[in-house]
C-alpha cells in the first residue's frame, strides 16, 4: 500500500519535471519557427540585427558569446587548474577542507553582485589599463570576459579537483617507486590520467560562461553589430546571446510575432550551444562530477 503510494508519487514528480523540461524545449522550437521561415539559415550567419527593417542576424551575438567565454576560460583555466593541483596533490584532508570552504562560497556569490562590481570597479580598471589602445569605453567584450573568468573559477576548480582526486593513489605510489619526484608524479602521472576530467571541467566552465546573463549584460556595452571581428573588437562594446535576451528588446518584441520569434530563436541557439558543450563534457566525464556544475 505505502509502497505503491511512494512509488506513484515519485514517478509523478519525475513525470512533472520531465513535462516542464519538454515544454521548455518545445516552446523554444515552436515559438522561434517564424524567424527560421523568414531568415532561413541566414538567421545564424547574418551579421545585421535591425528589427525595424526585419533583419535578424545572430552572428554578432554568437561571436560575442564565444569571445567572452573564451576570454573567461583562458584566464580562469590556469588559475583553477593550478589551485586544483595544489588542493588535490599537496594538501591533506583537513587542510583541503579548509581550502574548499572559500571556493564553495565563491561559487555561491550571485551574478548580480559580480555585475555590480563589474560596473563600479572592473569597467573603470579595464578602461584605464588599456587606455593607449583607445577602447571605446569601459564596457567591452574583454570586461565581460574578465568578469566571467572570476565567476567560472570555482566551477572549473572544483571539477578539476574532483578529476585529479579521481586518480588512484596506487598510481601515485607507483610513480614515486619509479623514482619520480612529487612534481614529476603530478606532471607525468596525475595530469595525464585526469586529462579527460580536466577537459570536461573546461567544457563545463565554457558552458557556464556562455549562459551567464546578468553580469555580462551590465558590462558588455550592448552593441548589436560588431564593426569587425578582429582582436580589436575585444576592446569594443559587443552583444552576447544572453545580453540580448535580457535587454528591453524582449519586452518590445512581445507583441510582434516575427520579432518575438527572433528573440526566442536567440534562446534556442544558446540552448543548442550550451547543451552540446554539456553533452560533450558528459562524454569525457560519464559518471559523477557533472553535478557540481553550477548553473550560470
Amino acid at each position: 500500500m505505502r509502497s505503491s503510494l511512494a512509488r506513484w508519487a515519485s514517478y509523478g514528480a519525475t513525470g512533472l519535471t520531465l513535462v516542464f523540461g519538454t515544454a521548455l524545449l518545445v516552446s523554444f522550437v515552436a515559438q522561434s519557427l517564424p524567424v527560421w521561415r523568414h531568415e532561413g539559415l541566414a538567421y545564424v550567419t547574418g551579421s545585421v540585427w535591425h528589427f525595424r527593417s526585419e533583419q535578424f542576424g545572430v552572428l554578432p551575438m554568437i561571436y560575442g558569446s564565444v569571445v567572452v567565454s573564451i576570454v573567461a576560460l583562458a584566464l580562469a583555466a590556469p588559475l583553477a587548474v593550478g589551485a586544483a593541483i595544489w588542493s588535490a596533490e599537496y594538501l591533506n584532508g583537513r587542510n583541503r577542507w579548509w581550502f574548499k570552504v572559500p571556493i564553495e562560497l565563491l561559487a555561491g556569490i550571485p551574478s548580480v553582485v559580480y555585475g555590480l562590481l563589474g560596473v563600479l570597479l572592473l569597467r573603470n580598471w579595464i578602461y584605464e589599463l588599456f587606455e593607449r589602445f583607445e577602447p571605446l569605453s569601459g564596457d567591452t567584450l574583454l570586461t565581460a570576459g574578465v568578469l566571467l573568468a572570476v565567476m567560472i573559477l570555482p566551477t572549473v576548480m572544483t571539477l578539476a579537483d574532483d578529476a585529479l582526486r579521481g586518480v588512484a593513489s596506487s598510481q601515485r605510489r607507483a610513480a614515486r617507486a619509479l623514482g619520480f619526484t612529487q612534481a614529476e608524479g603530478v606532471l607525468r602521472v596525475s595530469l595525464p590520467q585526469a586529462a579527460p576530467g580536466l577537459v570536461a571541467a573546461l567544457l563545463l566552465g565554457l558552458g557556464r560562461a556562455m549562459g551567464e546573463t546578468i553580469a555580462v549584460f551590465l558590462v558588455v556595452g550592448r552593441q548589436d553589430s560588431q564593426a569587425d571581428y578582429g582582436l580589436r573588437s575585444w576592446l569594443e562594446a559587443g552583444q552576447t546571446l544572453t545580453s540580448k535576451l535580457g535587454s528591453s528588446e524582449t519586452f518590445l518584441a512581445y507583441g510582434d510575432p516575427l520579432h518575438w520569434s527572433a528573440i526566442v530563436g536567440l534562446g534556442l541557439v544558446l540552448l543548442a550551444l550550451v547543451l552540446s558543450l554539456t553533452l560533450a563534457a558528459g562524454r569525457w566525464l560519464p559518471e559523477t562530477g557533472l553535478a557540481r556544475n553550477r548553473r550560470a
Partner: peptide, 8 residues
C-alpha cells in the same frame, strides 16, 4: 541603421 553601444 547604425551600431553604437546602447543604453537604457
Amino acid at each position: 541603421m547604425v551600431s553604437h553601444p546602447e543604453v537604457g
